[in-house]
Design a protein around this nucleic acid. Structure first.
Lengths: 337, 337
DNA sequence: CCTACTAATTAGAGCGCTCTAACAGCCGAG
DNA sequence: CTCGGCTGTTAGAGCGCTCTAATTAGTAGG
């Protein structure tokens, strides 16, 4: 920087003003500085800048694993907005371990990130509160009361409601659920299913097959259902992988989907929209979630304000795996219509 | 840091030594410093540290788009090793635009990253050379001569060879290829296909259907093939998405896979291993590629040495979409065996 | 008991910037 | 003219560390 100042025949301070694109610098000197800078191949040092200005223009993101498309897509949304806003992204994976997450948070805080985004963190609430006291914090995919953070949450109850409404409107009553175990969203979807069935006075038809978020769970669930006297007319799977497993399992057994049984997934992953699968499923705008999280964070970085909780409303994507049940047990008005 | 020194009754320099876990500090003072630090909630400032030591312990990664699992998985591999080695990850997306890539490289260089990993960059070679002159650089998925960088490349010719060998061994001769246009690996796979067909004296059966890396391209290619007098007995798709499109297109037309036609994909994405798809495909160890890239980079950071080019050997995953052709045009020995 | 070493500790300069306050020029108002 | 109020420029302190060189404490040999 000294070199640039000397080359341009001005003071170091003026070079600083030019590099930061501040007003009140005469055009002539600005040009002289810029010329000198490019002639010398000068590149400002972000470390020194951050140290002196005590602002870093970097934001830290902690997620489970980049190889999981759910997280990667959220990170993609964050990245998109970050680059638009001139922020840099410091990324770390927590790998489902509290210990690793804590270490990652510590490292990012040492880097004095302007803010922190935690995606479905596993750490205890106390650690999150501690982190939130050191930097503005936005959390995605996990709720937390009485801590000074913004939260972006998917409205799982609403998503599940859309599924049930769709199936019931088609005329289904015996609707089973293959659940997702304790994975993210699993318990919420399961309990929303049970509640929804009761609300629709279909509680007696509730049936939950335990599973997890894998394809194998779907295959197994299909076998288990086939072993029963009667197949449900529709199945709500905890996610698309499970739904794909069901599809595979029924296919092998010669059961027609959606003729014999309708299937609905959850997540709208790339799998769901394949022509060969064409799965009716619930879509969450994952990129948007990432953008929203960063939007909240940027807002929080320069305005202190009360916590916000944003509920993301998922939507239903109807494709080819749902249809009316073979025998409609509906009132005749439906037939007339 | 001053506060910690005062609290522990030692000099600032000693605190620095303790925080950096240097030897030659007496146990007693080390404990005193650590105590004081945790009592005051002291967290070293990475900016100041980098500025003073002129080493940042951060590495920059530039890729196309996090939402593309190919890139996300490579990034995942980089992240994994980075966290093991105590490095932080600064991530930016280039979004298929030279301009954005250049901006990202510039921003990362301002942050004085210890090294740079570029995954399938689109920028002109000159820009890459310029970047390489400012920081150790490793490139993944793109070759470049006479520039001081290490390179990690997939051996597309080998992967394509595996596909052809497998199909030819099954007895196929009329093997078509739906190509990937100009996308990463597309041209290489295409030319390796043409070369391979010639090598196997099957040049007269070569058939390339132009496409890109999308499912739609696969569907269209299926339609185009069906419009011909004769279907090839096997199709090598440029990637799994295209293969899925082919599968969907043939399914709709009542063509049996692999009975009427065998299909091979490329990439071994999550789509390929679904029971419902079960696609024979070529696997690349993407996480390993990321790890290897960082390994080379770390090595390059502390030892100046000649450039390296590492070829990653893909492997073939045989699933259910390939089988011998219906009418085997093979010598009778095969029938006897 | 002094010297020669090694181990532990510290003073102080400096990394490359930003930022505050001061300063120089220049205008129009009093 | 002199003064306040501009705009454009600059000097210099300081951000929170690391690192070199110097200093002190400790240990063993003569």
């Amino acid at each position: 920087m000294d070199d640039v100042a000397r080359e341009a025949g001005v003071s170091r301070a003026l070079v600083s003003l030019v590099m930061r694109e501040r007003p009140n610098v005469s055009d002539e000197r600005r040009r002289r500085v810029l010329d000198a800078a490019s002639r010398l191949g000068y590149r400002p040092n972000a470390m020194a800048r951050s140290l002196a200005s005590r602002r870093t223009k970097t934001i830290g993101v902690i997620l489970d694993d980049l190889r999981n498309p759910f997280f990667a897509e959220i990170a993609g949304g964050v990245e998109e907005l970050a680059s638009e806003a001139g922020y840099q992204l410091l990324l770390a994976a927590g790998g489902r371990s509290s210990r690793r997450e804590r270490a990652a948070v510590g490292a990012l805080l040492e880097h004095r990130v302007s803010g922190l985004i935690l995606v479905s963190p596993r750490m205890p609430a106390g650690d999150i509160a501690a982190a939130a006291s050191e930097a503005p914090l936005v959390m995605v995919g996990r709720g937390l009361r009485s801590v000074d953070v913004d939260i972006v949450l998917i409205n799982e109850a609403h998503g599940t409601g859309l599924v049930l409404d769709h199936l019931i409107e088609l005329g289904h009553e015996r609707i089973a659920h293959v659940d997702g175990g304790s994975g993210a969203g699993g318990p919420q979807r399961r309990s929303a299913y049970l509640r929804g069935m009761r609300t629709h006075r279909l509680g007696r038809h509730s049936l939950v097959i335990p599973g997890d978020f894998t394809e194998e769970a779907g295959v197994k669930a299909a076998e288990e259902l086939l072993a029963r006297r009667e197949l449900p007319t529709a199945i709500f799977a905890a996610n698309d992988m499970v739904a794909a497993g069901l599809l595979g399992g029924f296919d092998r057994a010669g059961i027609d989907v959606p003729g014999d049984v309708s299937i609905v997934g959850y997540d709208n992953t790339s799998i769901a929209h394949l022509a060969h699968v064409s799965l009716t499923t619930v879509d969450q705008p994952r990129t948007e979630m990432g953008r929203l999280a960063l939007e909240l964070l940027l807002d929080r970085i320069d305005n202190r304000r009360p916590n916000e909780l944003r509920l993301i409303e998922p939507s239903l994507v109807i494709r080819s795996t749902t249809a009316p049940p073979r025998v409609i047990a509906a009132p005749s008005v439906v037939a007339i219509a």
